[in-house]
C-alpha cells in the first residue's frame, strides 16, 4: 500500500552527552532531512536524552549479512594474542 507520499524512514543516532559516541536510538519517518532532524529531536530527546543528533536515510545503511557472519566475525575469535590477557608477566612487574 506504499505510495509516493509515504515519507521515507530515517535512522536516528543520538549523542547522550559530550564525550560519548552517537548511538542508534531508533528510526522515524520524515519527508526530508531537515524535518527528520526536528522529528528526532522531538521524539528521541524530549527527556533530555541528547546533546547531538544524526539522522541518516535508512536506505543509505549497508549492513553485513547474517549469512556471512561466520566469515566476517569468526576469524577474529582465534587470535587471542590481540588481547593483553594473552601474555604472562612475572609477578611484581609494574606499569605493564
Amino acid at each position: 500500500m506504499s505510495s509516493s507520499t509515504d515519507w521515507p524512514l530515517w535512522e536516528v543516532f543520538v549523542r547522550s552527552r559530550r564525550g560519548l559516541s552517537h548511538t542508534h536510538a531508533g528510526s522515524l519517518h520524515a519527508p526530508d532531512a531537515e524535518m527528520a532532524l526536528r522529528n528526532a529531536r522531538d521524539l528521541y530527546t524530549r527527556r533530555s536524552e541528547g546533546v547531538s543528533i544524526w539522522v541518516v536515510p535508512s536506505t543509505a545503511v549497508t549492513a553485513s549479512s547474517p549469512d556471512e557472519k561466520d566469515s566476517f566475525f569468526e576469524p577474529a575469535a582465534d587470535k587471542p594474542y590481540r588481547h593483553p590477557t594473552f601474555y604472562e608477566i612475572p609477578d611484581g612487574v609494574k606499569h605493564l
Binding site: H29, A30, M35, N39, D42, L43
Partner: peptide, 11 residues
C-alpha cells in the same frame, strides 16, 4: 496529520 506532528505540536 501524522504521528510525528502529534509529538511536535504537543511539545
Amino acid at each position: 496529520p501524522v504521528l510525528e506532528e502529534e509529538v511536535a505540536l504537543a511539545n
